[in-house]
Nucleic acid binder design. Sequence first.
DNA 1: GTTACCACTTACCTTTGGGTAACTGCTAAC
DNA 2: GTTAGCAGTTACCCAAAGGTAAGTGGTAAC
Lengths: 120, 120
Amino acid sequence: MKKPEKVHDQTSCMAALNAMSDSFYVIGGKWKLRIIISLKNGNKRFNEIQRSIPGLSAKVLSGELKDLEANGLIKRMVYTETPVVVEYLLTSYSDTLEPVLNSLVEWGENHREKIRSGEI
Amino acid sequence: MKKPEKVHDQTSCMAALNAMSDSFYVIGGKWKLRIIISLKNGNKRFNEIQRSIPGLSAKVLSGELKDLEANGLIKRMVYTETPVVVEYLLTSYSDTLEPVLNSLVEWGENHREKIRSGEI
DNA sequence: GTTACCACTTACCTTTGGGTAACTGCTAAC
DNA sequence: GTTAGCAGTTACCCAAAGGTAAGTGGTAAC
C-alpha cells in the first residue's frame, strides 16, 4: 500500500521539477544572469561586457555567450565593416525572464535584510 | 567623460546584483529546491527525503539540510523518545520562496516548450 | 615598427560540488 | 545473535566549473 496521493499527481509534479531544473540549467551558474543584466544596461561589445563584470574572464564570457545564444536569449551580430564589429543583443525572448529576475532579486534583498537583522 | 548614467544609479544596481547572488547562494545547486519541494510534499524524515529524491546521497543531503537550516528555511526537530526521531520541517519563512519557485517552474516549462517546438 | 585594441581561443591548473562506499551507534525485529 | 532500519559521518575519488596566462589574427594609432 502506497501513501495517499497528494493534491498533485506524480506526472505533473515531475514535470514541474524538470522545468525547474531546466531553468537552472539555462540561467544558473555564476555569470549568466549578470551577463544578461549587463546587456540590459546597454553593453553590447565583448570587451565592454567583460569590463562591466569584474572577475569574469574572456574564456568564461565566451562560453556563456554561446550558451545564452543557443537558448535564444541573446543574438550575436557581426557587422562586416572594417574593422569587423561584433555586437551582442538581447532578444525579445529574454524579456520573459523578467519575473524570474525580479523574484530572485526581491527574495535575495529580503533574505539579506533578514540575515542582517539577526532574525535567523 | 563617462557614459551617461542609466535610469538606475550604480549603488542600487549593485545591490540588486548582490541580492540575486545571495538567492543563488541559498537556493542554488542541484538539490536545495528539490529538498524543499520534497518537504512540501510531506516528507519529514531523513531517509524518507533521501528516498524521495533519486540520486541524492546521504552525505549531500546531510550538508544541504544544514545549509537550509542555517538560512532559516527548515527546522530540525529532535524528539527524544526511544527510538530518537528526527524530523525536518519547513518554516513559515520558506513560504516566501513561492514566487521564486513559481517563476522558475513557469519559465522552465515555457522554455522547454519553446525548445521542443523548434522555435530556437 | 612597436604598441595597443578587438574578439576571441588554447592549454593548463585549481577549486568546488558531488558520487561511492564503508562505517558508527543506536533500536527493533526475527 | 544476526539482520535491518534510522540518522547520519568519514575517507576517498571524480568531473565540471571556473581561473590564469599566453597566444592568435586582424586593425589602428603613435
